[in-house]
């Protein structure tokens, strides 16, 4: 040891440590990778299941605006809905929303906010509203069946009267508006992709 020059020793020891570390990580990765992939898949499946009507399988397709998931039933070739991710900025940080659209691209079949860092107790009502004991999921639930043309509109302190309107959250106008803005934007994108692809017939 003492005969070795300092720099050789430094190189040797650091190499040893990194090799050791690489070995541990490689081994651990082979054990955990399938499990992590499985959980991701499950989470994705659950989210798609939440936003689309009942279906048996779905196929994914890469587009310039992200992956779209086309759900079908075994009994027919016609898709029952299209799901995709919509992302954009909320009140404080990025919102990631799974969106389900009818194959005619006219109505939403559901939305699910997967990631958000809105103000607890106010903006977080876009996911769940614990203050509403009867219907804590009233905000995301009201998107089911809403028409997307010409675009989604938030109304304040009132029940929606048009079929493209949703009720905003009192005290979290910006978060409510952020959700519809993100949806409007991505829906427009997906519509162009879907028409260029040949529509629901393909």
């Amino acid at each position: 040891m003492s005969k070795m020059s300092l720099s050789t020793r430094m190189i040797l020891v650091l190499t040893l440590i990194t090799v050791l570390s690489g070995g541990i990580l490689a081994g651990w990765d082979t054990i955990t990778k399938p499990k992590i992939a499985f959980h991701r898949q499950e989470a994705l499946k659950a989210a798609i299941g939440d936003v689309l009507p009942a279906h048996d399988t779905y196929s994914s397709e890469e587009t310039e605006f992200g992956t779209i998931y086309i759900a079908t039933r075994d009994s027919s070739d016609q898709p029952v809905g299209v799901a995709f991710m919509a992302m954009g900025s909320g009140f404080q940080g990025e919102l990631r929303i799974m969106v389900g659209l009818s194959p005619e691209m006219t109505q939403l079949t559901g939305i699910k906010v997967l990631e958000q860092i809105e103000t607890p107790g106010l903006g977080t009502k876009i996911v769940v509203d614990p203050s509403n004991k009867k219907d804590p999921y009233w905000f995301p639930a009201q998107f089911r069946g809403v028409h997307v043309s010409p675009e989604l509109v938030v109304v304040k302190n009132a029940k929606p009267t048009q079929n493209n309107e949703v009720q905003g959250i009192t005290g979290a106008t910006i978060s409510s508006k952020a959700v519809t803005d993100i949806l409007n934007n991505q829906i427009a994108n997906i519509k162009t992709v879907w028409t260029s692809r040949g529509g629901p017939e393909s």
């Binding site: 650091l14 440590i17 990194t18 050791l20 570390s21 541990i24 990580l25 651990w28 990765d29 054990i31 955990t32 499990k35 992590i36 959980h39």
Partner: peptide, 17 residues
């Protein structure tokens, strides 16, 4: 390097289980 290795191990462990 050593600490980062074990942090990654812990992170992957939680993500997997």
């Amino acid at each position: 390097v050593i600490i980062a290795t074990f942090v990654t191990v812990a992170d992957r462990f939680l993500a997997a289980y």
